[in-house]
Structure formats: C-alpha cells, structure tokens
Nucleic acid binder design. Structure first.
Lengths: 204, 204
DNA sequence: GTCTATAAGATGATAGAC
DNA sequence: GTCTATCATCTTATAGAC
C-alpha cells in the first residue's frame, strides 16, 4: 500500500535524525493509521526512500520494530503525563490537557491512539507487545486516578463512584471516541464525547 | 495464522447451513478477533476444511466477502435493536439490553464489535465498507436517540446535554470499553464502564 | 459447488558485496 | 550502514477438471 498521509513527517525534514528514528516515525504513523497488520517493511522503505534490508539492519524483525515503537511511545506518553501532573493547575484543567493529548493524535492525519489500534490488533500481536499495550492502559488509569484524587481533595471535582472506575471510564470513553470519530473523519465527534465526559466530573 | 478460538462456531455443527453462511460465520469471527487485514481466505478454508477456491466461488473477492459480512451484520444488529425498542420495558431497561448486545460479543471469545474493529482498520478498507461502518454507527446513534427521548418523555431518564450528544457518548463509551476490556481479556472492565455510563442517565 | 493446479505479487527475512 | 540479490511463504485470485 502507498500512503501519503504522513502528517508530521516527510523524508526531507529532520535530516539530522538518525535512520532508526526516521523508521520509527514512519512506522508509528503507519501503525496508527493502518494497524500492525496493515503496514509492511516495504511501505516504510518506500516512504523513506531506502531499501527493506536497511530497516532490518535497525530492527531485525517486525516484532523488534513493534517493541521499539511501544517503548518509545510509552516513554513519550509518560513524559507528557508527567508534564501535566507536574504543572500547577486544578484537576479539571489537567484532565482537559489529558484529553488534548488524544485529540492531537486525531488531528495528526486522523490517526488512532497507537495502543488503541494495537488493542484492536491484540490477538495477532507477539506476547511482549500485548503486555505493553496492557501496561500503557494501566499507566493511563493510574495517572488518571491520581488526578481524580487531587480533584476530590482540592474540591474541584465531584463524582459518584470509585476513583478507579471513573479512571477506567475516562480512558475507555476517549479511546472509543477516537475510534468512532476517525471513521467519520470528524474531530468534533471526539470533542462531543470528551467534553461532556470531563465536564460531568466538575464540582458545582 | 491458525486460530482455534471460534467460539460460537465449529465445522461439525449447523451442517444444514449453506457453505456461504458457514464462510460468513467463520470470516466474521476472524474479523472480530484479528481485523480485516489479520485473516485470509486460507484461514477460513482451513477452519471449514474446504479449499480456497470454494470461498472465491461464493465471494469472488475479499471486498465482496467484506460487503456480505457487513450487510448481514448490520441486518442482524438492526433486528436486535428493533426487538429491544419494540418491547414494552422502560428506557433504562432497553439501554441495559443494548449494552448487553455489546457485552455478549465480548463473551463470545473476547471478540470486538465488528464495526469497532473495522473502524480501526478504516484507512485500509474499500470505500463501500467504509460507508457501511459509518452507517452502522449512525444507525446505532439514531436508535439510542429514540430511546433517550422515550426515557425523557416517560420520566425514567434524566440527563443534561443534548439527546444526540448523549447517544454519541454512549456508543463511543461502549466501543472503547470493548476495546480496552478485550486487551485485558477481562469482561468486568467492560461492565465497569457500561454500568456507570447508563446508570448516570437514570432519573432520580 | 468443489476440487487441483497455478499465477502474480506481497511479506518478513537473510547472505554477502560495498 | 546501505545496498543488490534472493528466499520461503503467504495472499488474493483465476483456469479449468470433476
């Protein structure tokens, strides 16, 4: 398959980036658009203007590439979450910024959250990748729990039900909102889910 | 790939079913488990104990098979929705039965909603299939809107925000709940999202 | 309606030259 | 680190016998 929609990347920019990073950039965009089984080494090579064996040199197998992809994605996401929770604002603002993380992925060429996409591909993934997908979700929920607790403590959030259950619900709603919104190629569909889900948590 | 998890189907039952139906049964299970790009005619043939050309005889191309799959799936889902909305109960009960539709798919070998899965595979689908996925979601939202209106009218439901927005949110939450729950192979994760989402709509 | 045989192209991967 | 050449296997699909 040939895909031009590599928003956020083209082979003529970031010339200082190492090949391995460029491969990860392209592969990630392809996974987020087409799924783990929807892209090939040939696709990545074509887009970067290199040959398949060059990719195998950096990532011997597709499972290796997948692991590197997940490792980098989880690290970056963890950094983004740390940046938000380390900031000074009230919990509702942090939740809005959190949803903004997902929203920005959709904005970037109508991509899906990489882990949401891999959750769909779940049964076809190598074991290590499966574990990483679960860990990503678990990390997200733990982070959300901390923010929800902060909000309850500072009085900025008021919600019935457990902190854990609420975190689970926020994550699932955002993943589902992305999934449905991207099939309509309409980001307002994401907003129409994310906004009320978060607003419903606010203290009166 | 070889998959044994064809809960709900094996080649020794339903011997009276026509081959085309058996193919659809197996292909649907595979799409729901592995995605559109995660299964092949060879997989279907192996499971049914027939040869690939027999499948091509019934469904000339994979796109044809996909169309037939969607057509049957949407029809069945529409029938299930009509059955629920045609019944006598109050809106909250109908919503619970609606969520039960999704839940039963998860129970069936940890499958994903077929359209949720195809929404992930969206960018790799033939145009007609894309349209069908969108139509499925739109049909679901329209049905939910009708139930939400019924609930408001009869006083069994009370929610802030628009009927349309609430319908969108319910669908997205359920799809996302399935997506996340299946990666943990834990149906209680689905329940922990579906229950509070629907309970929050109930009139006091 | 199902089969054998087969094709053209894709896929993940390797050997070995430069 | 990148390339050419090559690989076994898989994928979608067709021709034609039974």
């Amino acid at each position: 398959m040939t895909f031009l929609l590599l928003a956020g990347y083209n082979s003529h920019m970031a010339t200082s980036a190492h090949t391995a990073d460029q491969i990860l950039d392209v592969a990630q965009a392809l996974v987020q658009s087409h799924g783990y089984n929807g892209f090939s080494y040939a696709d990545v090579a074509r887009i970067l203007g290199i040959r398949k064996p060059s990719i195998h040199h950096h990532f011997a197998t597709k499972a290796d590439l997948g692991r590197a992809l997940m490792s980098r994605y989880r690290q970056r996401f963890a950094d983004a979450l740390a940046d938000i929770s380390g900031s000074a604002g009230p919990a509702p603002l942090k939740l809005r910024r959190y949803a903004g993380l997902f929203r920005s992925v959709l904005e970037q060429g109508n991509r899906m959250c990489m882990c949401g996409m891999l959750a769909a591909d779940f049964s076809t993934l190598p074991r290590l990748l499966r574990d990483s997908v679960r860990a990503f979700f678990a990390d997200n929920e733990s982070w959300l729990e901390a923010i929800l607790k902060q909000g309850r403590t500072e009085g900025s959030l008021a919600f019935t039900g457990s902190v854990r259950g609420t975190a689970t619900r926020i994550l699932a709603s955002l993943e589902g909102a992305m999934l449905v919104a991207r099939s309509f190629e309409d980001i307002t569909r994401f907003d129409n889910v994310a906004r009320p889900v978060l607003d419903a948590l606010k203290a009166a």
